[in-house]
Design a protein around this nucleic acid. Structure first.
Lengths: 214, 214, 214, 214
DNA sequence: TATGAATGAGCGTTCATTCAT
DNA sequence: TATGAATGAACGCTCATTCAT
């Protein structure tokens, strides 16, 4: 399943790395603290304390506090997201979904699971996006490409069968993303306990199928 | 129109206040800086500099930096939002919308205009919500009440005429809010130049009407 | 009685002064606050608030915070103490005490009453003396003169009658002052409720008479 | 001798502590400055400058300026005073003083030496006691217990032999303390050069013996 | 490599003092 | 004269970062 791979991608990125155990502890502690209190309200002393290392050790591998942030978010953006997206598309393409409902159900479910599995990274990400729009623009550009180049052909396929409304891919994507984020983000921000992902998926799909029907 | 009142509510809250010109400059500078760089990355020296006052002046009226934040957001939450919401509902009720499309068109347009008119306050708000979930929970609780008590009867009316699907008010609300925020937030975060609000409204309504049709 | 005059000397110094009602309020508020919290821990804003005047008014008459302090302590040192001391000696001289016990009883009682009547001024004084030894030295020099020139002849008189030990005036004075302060200062510092002055006087005199007997 | 131990107790408390050389320098500088200018008039920048360290170093071990104060005074109150007092009483008890004069001579001499050996700590202490009566009350309560429980039996012994007047222990103690402080405090406050302790002791004992004789 | 003491710039805040009204 | 808004230097304190061990 793509879902499990997603979480393991980050875990693997730790395992694969040449980081020592202590440096991994630094990343793990930073992930926790950045998600809980935000980047600015987390001090390097906090990180060292939670990681159980000295302050000097924090700076042995990472030259600045910002480096730690990037060590966490860069895999999320440059590897985790694309990798997962790659797998996601590969799975979609090879799966040969018989109809749009099947595709949508898979995609929505997959993304909800992905978002919930990476709550903390997602929260850190959202925090930074809101604080510094540069990241948002980069992300938006990438997402835009993803839709116009990666998904448009797929959509075309179902538009031809009369299952999907004849809107441009970005507009369709926006509605799907908005609706999914409307489920995932509150849970990520408020740390709501686990929800019933299958029911949520079913409800969202029900709504989107109607909204996106020609 | 409620929309114009919304922006003037904040401006009026400055005008009505017993703040001196310099104190108002402090609030204005804080609004700008908090929105641009975030609360944590804005220093009181920054505020004083942009406001063209001494640091002492910043603290003459506002006892702490946090007080400035609250002087900006409290009207937004306790007065602007409820007041606007109040006016919004009153207008909806008295308007006697002939059909669900009319209601939805008005509501979506009104909220988009409101969000864009208060970009900076909204951005500060979103920043804080993401950094400190407490605010989110308070807001969510209030929004939940708004839907179950304020909007449910309205929805019922259109559900009885067969124009609106028989889902509970919160689910319907969630989809509407998600879709509207999917339009407004990117613009707020990325400081995108003004969009064509009427077209956006029309597109969103078109999507929602289908998605929420029985 | 000298005692009542002593307190009225300060009150009178306010009345006699060309200070406006508000400026007197400033002095009164300063007296209270300096005694309660100490000079350094009292802000001019505190003074203005307690006096019920604006901060500007505080500085209309008194150019600096230190000036307020001196307006309070200078009368205490330059007028109140010497004046009282003058009256005290005059009273002593003219009283023609029949024996040393009478003199000592009067002096001890008078000084205890004086100290308790001027608790707050005394406390401010002690605070400053401990913080800045300069004042102590000035006071010690004056006290020394008082004893060698003012009191030595008086002591001589009782030393000749065999009622008082043949120590030099300063040594005698030191024991008397120490013992009296041992009663007065704790009460001034700890704000102990009023004590039985007559009994205290009697006890102290009993001790001193023996200790200073040839 | 207890006297020498007294000074070394503080020095030892520095040596025994796990403080680095710079942290000790911070304490030493603070001791000097607090005694010279008072706690409120000493800035942390002053302390850092005199200690030859950065301001950050001052706060590495001590979380607040007040913590520095307490690191200086707590040993003085909780360890130095009681320990010395403990040694003092033990010495007194085991010494088996043949008469009250011997006891008094020892006690007065010991306390004078103690006070002069700890001039600066004593001065800081007195400053704080005058500025914040809470400390005075705590000290007074402890002293009161010391006298009624620790010294009363000792006094009783000499009252039985007819060497000591039949007053209660607190009254006797008050006179002794007042007289000793009458010698020590001026020297502590005014930084008078070393006095002849032996002569002072002899004079004080001469006075007290008479004053406390039945 | 890992430590943690040390740094110093900068933070939020206070406050004695000034001055236009 | 009285006001109180305004000032700016200094305060106590924090924290990302460095470096000797």
């Amino acid at each position: 399943m793509a879902l499990n791979n997603v979480e393991s991608l980050f875990a693997a990125s730790l395992q694969d790395s040449d980081l020592s155990a202590k440096q991994k502890a630094v990343l793990r502690a930073s992930l926790t603290l950045f998600a809980d209190k935000g980047y600015d309200r987390t001090s390097t002393a906090d990180i060292a304390r939670l990681a159980g290392v000295s302050e000097g050790t924090v700076y042995k591998r990472f030259k600045t506090k910002r480096d730690i942030f990037e060590a966490i978010t860069t895999p999320f953006v440059d590897q985790v997201l694309p990798t997962a997206a790659g797998e996601f598309f590969k799975e979609i393409s090879t799966a040969g979904f018989p109809d749009f409902r099947s595709l949508l159900t898979f995609a929505v479910h997959d993304r909800i699971v992905f978002g919930l599995a990476n709550r903390r990274e997602l929260k850190i990400f959202v925090q930074e996006i809101v604080a510094d729009p540069q990241m948002f623009n980069a992300l938006a550009a990438r997402a835009s490409q993803l839709f116009t180049k990666g998904l448009a052909p797929l959509f075309k396929q179902f538009q031809d069968t009369g299952e999907l409304v004849q809107w441009d891919a970005i507009r369709i994507g926006r509605y799907i993303i908005s609706t999914v984020l409307g489920y995932v983000l509150p849970s990520v921000i408020a740390r709501t306990p686990e929800q019933n992902v299958d029911q949520a998926t079913q409800e969202i799909v029900e709504f989107l199928l109607k909204g996106l029907h020609p």
